[in-house]
Simulated scan of single mutants.
Amino acid sequence: MDSQEYGRLRAVGETVVVVTAVVGAMTGVGVRSLAGRLAGRRPPPVSCEAACLIVAVLAQVAPTATGVFATTVFGWWCVCLSAVDLLVRRLPNVLTVGGAGSILATAAVTGHGREAMVGAVLLAAPLCVTHLALPRSLGAGDVKLAVGLGAVAGIAGPAALLVSALLPSVLTAGAATFTRVARARRRSENCGVVLLPHGPSMCLATGVALITAG
């Protein structure tokens, strides 16, 4: 490859990144508006735009154009879910059930229905048992979310499914500990147990699982 061809490829790559970032940021405006309507109050300015931009850029690591599109849409769905959960600690059925149904239907049409269904069951079943035994520790919305996330992780493979199952608890516990320490330092006292929504950790863990699964 000569220097001119390398320069052209580099210019094309930089253009793709810029266009992708712009599209991601513009989509974030819509995501923030939707999350605001579902939650009853808007997320902080630029929050969803930045998150959707990052998702769009990271999704470019997918090996095919179809994979890039699917990963991007999945990531934007996760951003909207996480924004609502962080605002009101609630995961709307229109997002969890609607998203899970869309993912399972798409998987069936594309020939991945079995893997998606197995992943959905394996990820959601333990959370369902936990919710029934200790409903205050885990909401029904998290169980419904696990169906869609498990379907995606199941398609990506056993390693992705394992990360999606184990990492969320670590992320939530870590965030709760950090929040507790930060509050204690500001108030110079022990703030006790800090309860945080679990949905964002579930979404982030599945995103990490997809990236590491390649």
Rank of each mutant, 00 (worst) to 15 (best):
35 A>T: 15
164 S>F: 06
161 L>H: 10
102 S>E: 04
189 E>R: 15
185 R>T: 06
134 L>D: 14
78 C>M: 13
131 H>W: 15
25 A>H: 07
172 T>Q: 06
146 A>C: 04
95 L>I: 14
112 H>K: 05
177 T>K: 02
38 L>Q: 10
18 V>G: 00
80 C>G: 00
1 M>Y: 11
104 L>Y: 12
153 A>Y: 11
56 A>T: 14
92 P>L: 07
110 T>H: 01
74 F>W: 14
171 L>R: 04
119 G>T: 12
162 L>I: 15
22 V>T: 12
39 A>I: 10
168 P>C: 02
3 S>C: 00
197 P>K: 08
49 E>R: 09
8 R>Q: 12
214 G>Y: 12
179 T>H: 03
210 L>K: 08
104 L>W: 08
113 G>C: 04
140 A>T: 13
100 A>W: 11
2 D>A: 01
69 F>M: 10
80 C>P: 00
162 L>Y: 13
156 A>C: 03
27 T>W: 02
28 G>Q: 08
180 R>Y: 01
111 G>A: 04
111 G>W: 05
123 L>R: 04
131 H>D: 03
34 L>T: 15
124 A>D: 10
34 L>P: 01
40 G>Y: 11
158 P>T: 14
139 G>C: 03
33 S>E: 15
86 L>I: 14
25 A>P: 00
5 E>V: 13
78 C>H: 06
82 S>H: 06
93 N>R: 11
158 P>F: 05
196 L>N: 07
34 L>G: 06
169 S>C: 01
107 A>R: 13
51 A>C: 08
170 V>R: 01
59 A>C: 09
180 R>C: 01
211 I>R: 07
175 A>N: 04
155 I>G: 00
195 L>S: 14
105 A>P: 02
35 A>I: 13
192 G>F: 09
23 V>Y: 03
165 A>F: 11
16 V>K: 06
184 A>H: 08
36 G>R: 11
101 G>R: 14
193 V>L: 06
158 P>M: 09
194 V>M: 03
7 G>N: 08
87 L>E: 15
60 Q>P: 00
13 G>L: 03
189 E>L: 08
72 T>E: 03
75 G>N: 07
157 G>Y: 08
114 R>D: 08
183 R>C: 01
103 I>Q: 05
85 D>I: 05
198 H>N: 01
179 T>G: 00
11 A>I: 03
99 G>S: 10
213 A>T: 09
174 G>W: 06
203 C>A: 15
25 A>I: 13
87 L>N: 03
134 L>I: 14
53 L>I: 06
62 A>R: 15
213 A>L: 02
155 I>P: 00
110 T>D: 03
177 T>F: 07
64 T>M: 02
